[in-house]
Design a protein around this nucleic acid. Structure first.
Length: 431
DNA sequence: CTAGGGTTAG
């Protein structure tokens, strides 16, 4: 039966193309006619697809074009034609200066392939492009290269960049920025600088994103000193950066390199210049001090941050509380916790956990349980780590029944025990 | 949708 139906449709295939062509000026009708046929079991071929694509390209209906292309991409194996065949069909029917059509199609195709991460196929298009006499727009290429980098295919992005130049496509400031990101990811700063040089030669001015990307790259690869130089240089060149972010990466970079004095100096200098900062640069320095056990300096920076009118938050407080506990100042941690809670600062489950853990280790499980209830009252649902902390607290007190009850409550709330929570219970059996 | 973006616990 199906076979018969298709035979009948076969006879009408030419008519379908003709009908679509007469509906050129009414894309909505053409599109519903196209879909109607499909619903009725008609299998479109390269010619009918080409017709609807021509119409959708001409009226710039990008969303609908995208859905048709994705459909072809998914079903390419069953359709009996290749995506590139569409170009051939469309090129034959080109009238006059219609060559836009192929560019539009290639842009849409790049976008469609990239959105489903079929990168090899896009790159195929890019390399075959010359044969058909068109080149995708630089915007499409930028989109492709950026997504390649996001997927960790940095070398492929760089290869695309070189291919673009071979095709004679002009890179713009976005393209260069993306390439700077690519080389920074690889830690190849000579090449990244080379991009800046190239920009200078072709008179494309690097913008804030290009500079920030470069600074961030340096700081993440143990070259913070240089990153800071670039930050200062761009400040002198009056390149507008997102200061809070730029200072954050530099301060974090110095902290990661255990250069706490340098990190503190950078923050000090930023304040001196009256640069507007947010919590992140402060948070980086506070965390840096906490990590190397200098909790008093951490507290100083925290105080200064707040006196500068920048609100603290639960992430920063977690670092501080954790560090206080590690230094054996649990009592102080609990007090600070209460102070900021009464202050109205939102404290999340992580913050609660640090204090709960401190209480448990001090033998005050009941107080920790109170905190758990307090969380629930604030509509913060305890997670597996919160439960494990308290179960451990009961175990330390030898309160087997309570531990098991909590374990069951945890399971009832949909938290499957993991390796840590099992280990806590196992330690109970051993003792 | 032509590029950027951040740290915390058992």
């Amino acid at each position: 039966m199906n076979h018969f139906v298709n035979r009948v449709f076969e006879l009408h295939r030419v008519e379908v193309v003709e009908t679509l062509n007469t509906l050129r000026e009414q894309p909505d009708k053409a599109f519903s006619f196209f879909n109607r046929l499909k619903e009725d079991g008609f299998s479109h071929d390269v010619c009918t697809y080409a017709s609807i694509i021509r119409i959708l390209c001409q009226c710039c209906w990008e969303r609908k074009l995208d859905s048709v292309l994705l459909e072809i991409i998914w079903r390419e194996k069953h359709l009996g034609f290749k995506v590139m065949d569409l170009f051939e069909i469309l090129e034959e029917g080109l009238e006059g200066e219609d060559s836009n059509l192929l560019v539009r199609l290639s842009n849409a195709l790049v976008k469609a392939y990239v959105s489903v991460e079929m990168f090899d196929e896009v790159i195929d298009i890019l390399f075959q492009t010359r044969r058909w006499g068109f080149i995708p727009h630089i915007f499409s290429c930028n989109f492709l290269m950026n997504r390649l980098i996001c997927c960790g295919k940095v070398d492929m992005a760089i290869a695309v960049y070189h291919q673009l130049k071979r095709l004679g496509l002009k890179a713009n400031d976005y393209t260069y920025g993306i390439m700077i990101k690519a080389f920074c990811r690889k830690g190849n700063f000579e090449k990244a600088v080379g991009i800046f040089d190239e920009m200078y030669e072709v008179r494309v001015r690097p913008n804030a994103v290009a500079y920030t990307t470069y600074i961030e790259g340096l700081c993440m690869h143990g070259r913070t000193e240089l990153g800071y130089e670039v930050l200062k240089e761009s400040r002198e060149l009056k390149i507008p950066l997102d200061d809070a972010f730029a200072y954050y990466v530099v301060i974090k970079g110095f902290c990661d390199e255990m250069k706490l004095e340098e990190a503190a100096d950078v923050l000090f200098e930023a304040e001196l210049y009256g640069i507007v900062l947010d919590t992140f640069p402060y948070g980086a320095l506070i965390r840096g001090y906490c990590k190397c056990g200098n909790i008093d300096r951490a507290l100083e920076v925290h105080d200064k941050m707040m006196s500068n009118g920048i609100k603290t938050n639960c992430v920063i407080l977690t670092s501080i509380l954790q560090s206080l506990c590690q230094m054996g100042r649990d009592f102080e941690a609990v007090n600070q916790f209460k102070k900021f809670r009464n202050f109205g600062i939102f404290l999340d489950e992580v913050c609660y956990n640090v204090v709960a853990d401190a209480l448990c280790k001090a033998g005050k499980v009941e107080a920790a349980v109170e905190l758990l209830d307090e969380m629930k009252g604030k509509q913060i649902s305890p997670d597996i780590i919160n439960y494990t902390t308290l179960i451990n607290g009961y175990c330390l007190q030898g309160k087997v029944e309570d531990a098991v009850n909590l374990f069951e409550e945890m399971s009832e709330n949909g938290h499957k025990p993991d390796i840590v929570s099992w280990n806590v219970l196992v330690s109970l059996i051993r003792s």
